[in-house]
């Protein structure tokens, strides 16, 4: 199963989503997402789920079930847009609170056995060289942190020609 997280407006979203297979799970911005409050309830009160009960509370389970994670995000200072980052911040139940060594550093133990592969499309006009370089290093860090291979990070000026690999 492909999990697609994007921050596109209605028209662009419709165009992009139509290029994916119907079983793709899409996580998009309907304006209702609440931000992570740093309570760690997803580890100690309702392990595996975010305790803020809205449509984004089971992101950890979704990540645990998907085989591919596709992210389409505006590039903001070399990182994700507020919405996409909000979804990722609300996804830490995907990992276990215990620590393990990976690539010489401490990272969280993985809660689920099967890793997914990550592909990211950053969009935006005038993304600077520093921002590209930062974004590539960010995704490398995310990939190590979530124990998931990184398939690729691409930069595009516009989302018009983006297509899913259905």
């Amino acid at each position: 199963m492909i999990l697609l997280i994007h921050d596109l407006g209605a028209e662009e979203a419709k165009r992009l989503e139509s290029t994916y297979a119907t079983e793709t799970v899409v996580v998009s911005d309907d304006g209702t997402i609440r931000h992570c409050v740093g309570c760690f309830g997803c580890w100690t009160k309702d392990p595996g789920s975010c305790v803020i009960k809205d449509k984004y509370s089971d992101m950890g389970a979704l990540l645990g079930a998907c085989t591919q994670l596709h992210i389409v995000s505006r590039c903001v200072y070399g990182g994700f847009s507020p919405f996409v980052k909000n979804v990722l911040d609300r996804s830490i139940s995907y990992v276990h609170p215990d620590l393990r060594m990976r690539e010489g550093q401490t990272h969280h133990r993985l809660r689920y056995d099967r890793p997914f592969r990550i592909s990211v499309w950053f969009y935006g006009e005038g993304i600077t060289e520093n921002e590209r370089e930062t974004a590539l290093r960010l995704l490398k860090a995310n990939s190590i942190n979530m124990g998931c291979p990184l398939d690729g990070v691409r930069f595009v000026e516009s989302t018009v020609n983006l297509k899913g690999r259905a």
Binding site: V25, V27, A61, L62, H96
Partner: peptide, 22 residues
């Protein structure tokens, strides 16, 4: 300590949530 304080068992720390399609 936190998980016991919240009335859960230690094994709950490892809980996996089955996927429920949105």
């Amino acid at each position: 300590r936190a998980i016991k304080h919240n009335g859960l068992k230690l094994r709950d720390l490892h809980r996996r949530i089955p996927l429920v399609r949105p």
